[in-house]
Amino acid sequence: MSNSVTVKYFGAIAEQTGISGETLELTHDLQNASQIKAYCIHKYNLNDQETIQVAINQELNDQGTVKEGDEIALLPPFAGG
């Protein structure tokens, strides 16, 4: 059975990944926001790692546990206004 989450990328991060999002299978080592962030940073060799924030289901949450069906987002620094 599939046990996956959606990961979305924005701004400078999407530019580096070359995609706006993907489906990620949750494994033993991919259970929380911090692990997913580390996984993506490694996979895409992302710059400015310390500025990346994570949202789980549209709420900033760098540490929370994720579950099947969640929407995870990797967000670069905000630049509104």
Binding site: F10, G11, A55, A73, F78, A79, G80, G81
Partner: peptide, 13 residues
């Protein structure tokens, strides 16, 4: 204005 600049996920190229 301050809240928007700090807390809304808008990105600018």
């Amino acid at each position: 204005v301050e809240e928007i600049k700090a807390n809304v996920p808008v990105f600018g190229k």
